[in-house]
Write a protein that binds this DNA or RNA. Structure first.
Length: 516
RNA sequence: GGCGCUAUCGUCUAGGGGUUAGGACGUGAGAUUCUCAAUCUUAAAACCCGGGUUCGAUUCCCGGUAGCGCUACCA
């Protein structure tokens, strides 16, 4: 498709865009740090809309801030997006009909457009120095409370401009903001209007020749034929300047959809100090990408009816609607994300969960780098047993300590077990069970049941008083999974070539009895 | 300070001129289980305040308040 699109010429392209409904959206991150949930949600909404409308999703890298942009962040960004399952049709890595897709590679385009605006007298050179501007701003603020550029250089005679330019005086380029209200439509917020007096003539080119964000974003969106600008609402106040730019350029203004901010529990904009906020953090915790996209979709959007919560990416594409996006800021609720993740861990295809869980065990040194089929089969059952106990995959190795770690003396010393040891019949149960099961290997679940019945008769205990001491002997705690599933795992694990030896039931009992 | 955006349970939200204001997370209680987790049932929990419009506002309008954003030769 891509080849035919590139090779087929503009006629072909026109046909394809018509077929695809013409919707073109973009996600335009700056490679200045980790991809963070707020931006990921913007990326998700763009992707959902593009896929639903069968339009194009474009990835553009906004790296005009050379000081803060780093190539490694760009690489990471692409990886994080892919991990989330958000793909793109045009971008710096895959190219596309509007290449290049990295702003630092598009400087001549910005330069040419700025020169055109100057020529058409829609923009002008501004010779004011930063110090002057600072002084003016303070004065304006004191006088009428508005820090608006005076427009001093706007009124300069052409001859003087020419003279100062020729003399080599540095100048930035400013756009003329028209003297009428600037209106635009926002899909999330409705009609928005800004009075002209509240919008300053913005600098579009710095005196260094580097273009400014609010300018390049418009040039790029226009050049790339973006039809819907879906982005964070921190850009809402910038939008009138951008609309004025589209108009000055004589280009169609796109539809806007400004998404509300995601806040931390303290109602402050979500940031690093709130803990895990980057996509990489969530991946490392063992949050599934589909759980994260599901949660993010629910932050600021709800299906009509508002009762369903669990949506696969395909279902989101089907149900999503920009018109149903809520304008109010939302607080990020880690607990709900965990709950959603648990649903995916429990209901997801077991092979997928095992595959995602494996690295956590390898990192903990509990499983080999290349587990053979025997080990894999055993591991699959281990995950099956443990999955209902966790919210996120990184909790799995700790939960598995009941399999991998058996420490009889720690079990005896653990204050949580004190109550069980204090029970009158506990020593009898330990002795009776130890005598019978301590020499058997492998212990079959049916045999275990028989033994438990015998112990029950001999000591005349039942329920907790019977089961708790036995469980402590086997896994060091009075609570844990049911024996039917646990015991075979221990017995089989003890014969497997694992980096950490899994003790069999017999070994566990013998160690425990020694300490009695 | 100015400009803009926002306002339903603690949180995410549905709804909308007349509703027992619905769902989910979390919390409490109960059921189940030898136990824990999971699961199921159940309870408590909300329309920011003041005016207007209206027979009737939580819903529409205006104002206030609060929160957030922008107010850079950052993005």
């Amino acid at each position: 498709m891509r080849e035919c699109l590139l090779g087929g010429g503009s006629k072909r392209l026109a046909i394809i865009t018509r077929m695809t409904g013409n919707v073109r959206v973009r996600f335009a991150p700056s490679p200045t740090g980790q991809l963070h949930v707020g931006n990921a949600r913007t990326a998700l909404f763009n992707w959902l809309y593009a896929r639903q409308q069968q339009g194009a999703n474009i990835l553009r890298i906004e790296d005009t801030d050379l000081e803060r942009s780093e190539a490694r962040y760009e690489t990471q960004l692409l990886e994080d997006l892919k991990w989330l399952g958000l793909n793109w049709d045009e971008g710096p890595d895959v190219g596309g009909p509007y290449s290049p897709y990295r702003q630092s590679d598009r400087m001549p385009i910005y330069q040419a457009a700025a020169e055109r605006l100057i020529r058409e007298q829609k923009a002008y050179y501004c010779f004011c120095t930063p110090q002057e501007l600072e002084r003016e701003r303070e004065q304006a603020l004191a006088e009428h409370g508005q820090a608006i550029y005076s427009g001093k250089c706007r009124r300069l005679e052409p001859a003087e401009v020419q003279r100062r330019r020729d003399a080599g005086e540095g100048a930035a380029i400013r756009l003329k903001i028209p003297e009428r209200p600037i209106k635009f439509h926002d899909i999330v917020r409705g009609d928005v209007e800004f009075a002209s007096e509240s919008v300053s003539d913005p600098i579009i080119m710095r005196s260094s020749g580097m273009p400014v964000y609010n300018y390049v974003v418009v040039i790029d969106d226009a050049e790339m034929k973006i039809t819907h600008v879906i982005r964070g609402d921190d850009h809402l106040s910038n939008t009138p300047k951008q609309v004025a730019l589209y108009e000055a350029l004589g280009l169609p203004v796109p539809e806007f959809a400004h998404l509300s901010t995601i806040l931390g529990p303290d109602r402050e904009r979500l940031s690093k100090r709130h803990g895990a906020t980057s996509i990489a953090n969530f991946r490392d915790m063992g949050i599934l990408p589909e759980a994260l996209t599901n949660y993010l979709a629910l932050l600021g959007w709800a299906p009509s009816g508002g009762t369903r919560e669990i949506f696969s990416p395909a279902e989101l594409i089907k149900e999503f609607s920009l018109k149903r996006v809520t304008p109010a800021p939302a607080i990020f609720d880690m607990e709900k994300l965990y709950w959603l993740n648990r649903q995916y861990v429990k209901q997801g295809p077991p092979e997928r969960i095992q595959q995602l869980a494996l690295p956590f065990f390898q990192k903990a040194g509990l499983l080999p780098e290349n587990p053979g089929p025997e080990v894999s089969k055993w591991f699959a059952r281990l995950i099956d047993l443990l999955a209902p106990y966790v919210d996120k995959l990184d909790q799995l190795p700790a939960k598995a300590s009941l399999i991998f770690q058996a420490d009889a003396s720690a079990a005896i010393a653990n204050p949580e077990n004190a109550e069980v040891f204090a029970a009158a019949k506990t020593p009898d149960v330990v002795r009776a069970f130890g005598r019978r099961a301590g020499s058997e290997f492998p212990l079959a679940p049916e045999r275990f049941k028989t033994i438990m019945n015998e112990v029950k008769e001999e000591v005349s205990v039942k329920g907790k008083d019977l089961f708790h001491p036995v469980r402590i002997m086997l896994i060091g705690s009075h609570s844990g999974p049911e024996f039917d599933r646990l015991i075979p795992l221990l017995e089989e694990g003890s014969e497997l070539p694992l980096p950490v030896h899994v003790k069999s039931v017999r070994e566990r009992i013998q160690e425990f009895m020694k300490l009695q």
